[in-house]
Each structure stands twice: as structure tokens, then as C-alpha cells.
Design a protein around this nucleic acid. Structure first.
Lengths: 156, 156
DNA sequence: TATTGTTATACTCTATAACTATA
DNA sequence: TATAGTTATAGAGTATAACAATA
């Protein structure tokens, strides 16, 4: 009745899930959802991003993104400004409040996550970092392959 | 306006997100959601699990779990059987159809995910596996700490 | 004609709290 | 009294398709 499958992948799934759940538990305390927090930290490193780019970075599709951004707008954390170069486009930015939240909570969030590494040796951290970076690149490259297969949405 | 933060953690967040989105794209083709698929693969390695245990493994809270399981039941993939030892408890199992789906799609899913590792050397895989396992354990152990802080629900 | 973003729809997940029934 | 699971509620994300305005 049982089958044995590669443990790497099982591990990958479970680790991701457990980690996400752990990260979410902190974000919830900020009265934000994971997608909302994702937008905050994505914007936190820029001076505003076009709606479209924001969707691409956060992997949130446009129909969904409208709602998520509106909720953040309602909370006073982000604002929409019309693009000066393209009448269809909007620039999404953190408000002052939003930026303050980012400045305060992102390091906090990192600290929270950092507790995971309390028992890590410096070497362990280096290994993990390298492994993650490699994996990230693999995911990104495969994902773009997939997308090319599905749409020709990609304008170089 | 910008701040520099540890890249490890940023990497961790982004990698997880990208990976999840990648994995989800495959699962959707099976007409399942991620939580539903998670239940299928969790049950796939057992001969049925008590409702409660299933919730603990998948990190789905009981109220939510009822709905997820019901949807899987509607699809004919799982069934609920009364426990013989505890009148309150239910055992959730894959039906034959469910098991067939598991047998067919899990390896497929793994293959799909395995494509991530096409450019990995055997050594890379070993490193990633070790790094993930370590991380997983760290998450689990921290998560249970958190839970103890919040409730005393844990009966040893 | 193609693209940006919004709106509408329908469904799933989510936490939480109140509830039933067994222990 | 405590535990297992269901039900009810309200909110948020999700994909998808139809739509408006602009390019």
C-alpha cells in the first residue's frame, strides 16, 4: 500500500509549507495577510512600482491584485498615482505610514525568521544561503519557460 | 530611501513564494487546490489517518479541514470512517480512486518538480536536501515553542 | 488592435466561535 | 470537564472573463 518517493522533494514541500505557516503567524500579528505583506516589502525597496511590475514580482494576477491593493489603500499603507508617461498605467507606492510600517516591521520580521537560525553554525548559514539561491534561480528559470509555453505575453 | 537587509532571508521568502507558485501551477492541472493535494499526498503514505492527526500534519485548522475534506469526498477521492476505538474520532482514507490519483500524479508531480534539479550535480542535491532538512527541523521546533506560548492545547 | 487596470463571478481557504456528541 | 468534529460567519485570495480607457 505504501510507496517510497524521493525524500528531497517531500522535504521541500513540507519545509516550504511549515515555513510559510511560521512566517504567516508573524505577519498576522501585523494585521496583514501574506500577499499584503509581500507587497509592502516589495515596494519597500523601491520608490514605487507600476501596477504591472508589482504583479509580476509578487506573482499576483491582475484581477486579484486590484483587490489586494485596494485593501492596502483602505488601510492607508499604499497609494495609486497615475503614470506620467502612460495614461493607462498606475504607480503604486508606499505612503508615509506604509513606509514607516515597512521600516519597523520588516527588520522585525527578519528577526523573527532569524530565530530559525539560532542553532546554525556560520557554515550552515552559508550552505543554506547557497542552496536557496541556486534553487531560486532554478525556479525562476523554469517558471519563465512555462510561461513562454502558455502565453507570448513576454515582451523581451 | 532604501535599506539593505540580509539577503538570505529575502532569498528565503522569494524562493518559497516562487516555488509554491510553480508547484501550484501543476496541481491546478489536476483540478485540485494545494491544500487538497497536500491531503492526498499526506494520506498516500498511510492507511488512513485520524482527522485530528491529518490536521496537525497539514497545518489546517479543524474548521477549515472539514470543508477541504468534504470537497475531496465530493470528488470521490477520500472517505470518512468512524474510529472503532473512539466514537468521536474519524479516520480519513484515500478511496481507490484517490489512491489511483495519488499513485499516478505524485510521481508526476515529483517529475515536474524534479525538472528544477536538471542542472544540479549530485552534490548540489545532497546539499540542498541537508539544508532543507535542517531548516524544516528548525521550523518545527520553533513552531511548537510558539504554540506552547499561546495555548496549552498540547497534551505531551 | 493590443495593453493597463477594473469589475463581476464563483469558489476555496482562512480563523474564529458556537455547537453536538462522545470520553 | 475536555476532546473530536461540524456548522456558521465573515473576510481574503484565486482564476477567469468581460469591460473601459488609453496606446
Amino acid at each position: 500500500m505504501k510507496s517510497t518517493f524521493p525524500t528531497v522533494l517531500r522535504e521541500l514541500l513540507r519545509t516550504h509549507q511549515a515555513f510559510l505557516s511560521y512566517a504567516a503567524s508573524h505577519v498576522q500579528k501585523l494585521d496583514l495577510t501574506l500577499p499584503q505583506f509581500d507587497i509592502i516589502i516589495t515596494l519597500g525597496n523601491t520608490d514605487g512600482l507600476p501596477y504591472k511590475i508589482l504583479g509580476e514580482k509578487t506573482l499576483i494576477t491582475k484581477g486579484t491584485l486590484t483587490g489586494v491593493i485596494s485593501r492596502l489603500e483602505d488601510k492607508g499603507l499604499v497609494q495609486r498615482d497615475a503614470s506620467k508617461t502612460d495614461g493607462r498605467s498606475q504607480i503604486i507606492r508606499l505612503t508615509e505610514t506604509g513606509y514607516a510600517l515597512f521600516e519597523r516591521t520588516f527588520p522585525e520580521h527578519l528577526l523573527f525568521i532569524n530565530r530559525l537560525f539560532d542553532n546554525y553554525s556560520p557554515e550552515d548559514v552559508i550552505n543554506l544561503e547557497a542552496a536557496l539561491k541556486q534553487l531560486h534561480e532554478a525556479v525562476i528559470s523554469l517558471r519563465s519557460e512555462e510561461q513562454e509555453k502558455i502565453v507570448d505575453d513576454t515582451e523581451a
